[in-house]
């Protein structure tokens, strides 16, 4: 019962921060709401028993990515954005029913898949040696190729970000008319 109350608190915090993300006007306030939501999601991970993912969520998301957004917001002059920052009202209204329909479809698929999947193969290992060890053992044995591919994706993304973000020697303002 206590776990359920903590879970409800964290999910309420995440949802309220999510509402803040889609309604606040100033981009800096939106970053603060995003940070609050990410920390609440890390709390949900902890209550679900996924300590490694929760800790990495705090480290990578809540520190690295949020700071990255703040740096970009402070690096770009936003005077024009502050004047024209509004919402697409009609699209915002019709997006929720469509998304709910798609997501209900996803949940049906998910529940059917859960029903068909093998139950609790490694639950006794998790109880015996802990969450982070189990995740590490499976990550570096069964999913080692995927791990390497993710490292390659990170490298390619880094090269792409540097190439896209560097200063051009010429500007293309004449081409965009």
């Amino acid at each position: 019962m206590g776990k359920l109350i903590i879970f409800g608190f964290f999910s309420l915090m995440a949802i309220l921060s999510g509402i803040g993300i889609i309604t606040l006007k100033n981009p800096v306030y939106v970053v603060v709401a995003l940070l609050s939501s990410l920390i609440a999601v890390a709390g949900i991970f902890f209550t679900a028993g996924a300590e490694l993912v929760g800790a990495l969520q705090l480290l990578i998301y809540a520190v690295a990515i949020a700071i990255f957004y703040i740096i970009v917001i402070s690096a770009v002059p936003w005077q024009k954005a502050k004047k024209s920052e509004t919402h697409h009202r009609f699209e915002g209204l019709i997006s929720l029913p469509v998304v709910l329909l798609l997501y209900i479809e996803m949940i049906v698929v998910f529940l059917l898949g859960v029903k068909a999947s093998p139950k609790g193969e490694i639950a006794k290992f998790i109880e015996k040696i802990g969450n982070a060890e189990v995740v590490g053992a499976i990550l570096f044995s069964k999913y080692f190729l995927a791990f390497e591919v993710v490292s390659l994706v990170l490298l390619v993304g880094m090269i792409g970000a540097v190439l896209i973000g560097r200063k051009e020697s010429q500007t293309y303002e004449d081409d965009t008319t």
Binding site: V114, S117, G120, E121, I122, A123, I126, V135
Partner: peptide, 8 residues
């Protein structure tokens, strides 16, 4: 489910 794949 008591698995660890989803966390990966």
């Amino acid at each position: 489910l008591g698995l660890a794949e989803g966390q990966i």
